[in-house]
Design a protein around this nucleic acid. Structure first.
Lengths: 131, 131
DNA sequence: ACGAGTCATGAGAACGATTCTCACCGTAGT
DNA sequence: ACTACGGTGAGAATCGTTCTCATGACTCGT
């Protein structure tokens, strides 16, 4: 009985917009996208919904170099990383068992606990390179 | 003959404050630190200096989960990663040849170019755990 | 040492992303 | 339907960071 979480038109719209794209999108992009599409949703609501989804582990969040948050609904809910296109946001889900082990090991060997890691790969996808 | 870059009192103070700590610090923290220490430096100057140092590869920059930028002068200038304490900012420099290779390989295999990676480990250091 | 031209500084305004406030609306359960 | 309570949106408020611009500090040629 944590947070009830009602299903509203707005939340559905945000979730749908998220599902519709394979790319990482910022809250503002999603907001515009919804507005253009006709399903206007308040910016604050977009943020709230994204935060709720992120807290529930239903969307993945990452930050660009300049600190903006990007969201994406991923196929798998298990832990994984991404290879993201710097220009279009397209992402490929990746997992690196080796890396996971390495991270945990390094952390422990330095006396740190509650080890967590941030591993994202950035690049330019084939389509964007063609431009 | 790129940017002249004059050595001023302020820039020296920022560099010194940076050298004085082994931990990752935010621009605001450094600004306060300098103020308390008596070497008052404008916040804008702190930001400008940090940016210049970062551009020159003289300091490492990373972002917290909430998007704030943290700076640290590292012992080595070659590419490396960090194991950072979530609560005090203390950092241990790390390199993972395996990981580097893995990242490049994965990127290429997906048809992405100009691959770059973000790999940081977060944890709680022994001292902070004791609190 | 003098002056001109240039880069640096700092206070405060401006910004962009995100969060908060609060009065009003919609959903879910009975 | 009725009610109780979460949800919503417009706009204000925050926060980190960058920009503006008038003033100050270097440097170099003379």
């Amino acid at each position: 009985m944590n947070t009830p979480l009602r299903m509203t038109k707005q939340r559905a719209a945000v979730a749908e917009a998220l599902d519709a794209s394979d790319e990482f999108r910022s809250a503002q992009q999603l907001h515009e996208l919804l507005r253009d599409r006709g399903d206007a949703v308040g910016l604050a609501t977009v943020y709230r919904t994204l935060q709720a989804l992120a807290d529930g582990g239903d969307v993945d969040v990452l930050r660009t170099d300049d600190g903006e948050a990007l969201y994406r609904r991923c196929a798998r809910t298990e832990h994984h990383h991404h290879l993201v296109c710097r220009s279009c946001g397209r992402a490929v889900e990746i997992d690196g068992p080796t890396v996971e082990a390495w991270a945990a090991e390094v952390g422990a060997s330095q006396g740190f606990s509650d080890i967590d890691h941030t591993i994202e790969l950035w690049g330019t996808c084939a389509d964007c390179r063609a431009l």
